[in-house]
Design a protein around this nucleic acid. Structure first.
Lengths: 150, 150
DNA sequence: TATTGTTATACTCTATAACTATA
DNA sequence: TATAGTTATAGAGTATAACAATA
């Protein structure tokens, strides 16, 4: 009984989640908080509204995540220069350093994974994953868009 | 700037999670509860201890998940025939029917995804995913096992 | 003495709704 | 009037520790 392609992909999903959880444990960080740190790394100082959009969660949730990251010294809230309602969330120096290291480990893991694939198969795997992403994106969007509000 | 292989895999992970959450919404089911239902589908009536091991969560957590699934009519607690400490959790008839349908949809999604990959690439993608699973499993285990308790 | 499940407690992620301060 | 963020409230998933009943 060959496992289905779908089962293999789900297994990879599970392995990633466990690998990430393991990498964070002890640091007080969680998947949701690290996600926010990645967004800040890529986008620079951001308002909580924009973080909510980027993370795909409610603004209220961002308040909680930023509270936690502020308490652990990873981010800092600073006043928005022109809008006194808003705050800018930015990485602290130590968090910036940490994210640089994480980004490096990310690239190293990528290299390790590519090295695990037979050279002759690599191009096909890349094409295949791209096709899967395209198909999955279409499926998710299809399910989202046509909410027949008749 | 080509995205990394790792980023593609993470994107697929994200798409799966969104697709599953979408599929369950409105049904009152969640990822954790559906996972438990899958375990029951595959293993048959089980004690909460064995469910805890199979789901990789604490026994206490299983109590909560089973409480919820019992309230929604998906599972039933029955006395263990020989061990009066334990209970056997089993699917109700309606949940069994639902899981059969879910299993069918699972196979259909698998077919859809395979169809999205160019036929010439399919074998290479399968091999590549197997290699990735092997490598990732080794990485996760390596990080787990040698907790140098010196 | 060890195991099964539950009660007690706590933390994180998540959401919606109401409210405050500003635009 | 609309927007940015917070307080209030709620529910799910997760954990550990203490306890009951049973092995």
């Amino acid at each position: 009984m060959e496992p289905l392609l779908l089962d293999r992909l789900l297994q990879i999903t599970d392995l990633f989640q466990r690998d990430m959880a393991r990498a964070f444990e002890g640091s007080g960080l969680t998947t949701a908080r690290v996600h926010l740190l990645w967004v800040l790394t890529h986008n620079g100082p951001s308002t909580q509204q924009s973080l909510a959009v980027a993370c795909g969660v409610s603004p209220r949730n961002i308040t909680g995540l930023v509270d936690g990251l502020e308490a652990s010294g990873h981010v800092r809230r600073t006043p928005h220069p022109t809008d006194r309602r808003a705050v800018l969330v930015e990485l602290t120096e130590s968090a910036t350093t940490m994210m640089r290291r994480m980004q490096q480990e990310h690239v190293e893991l990528n290299d390790t994974l590519i090295a695990a694939i037979a050279p002759a198969d690599r191009a096909a795997v890349e094409r295949g994953l791209n096709s899967l992403i395209e198909k999955l994106t279409a499926l998710v969007d299809d399910a989202q868009t046509p909410e027949r509000r008749s």
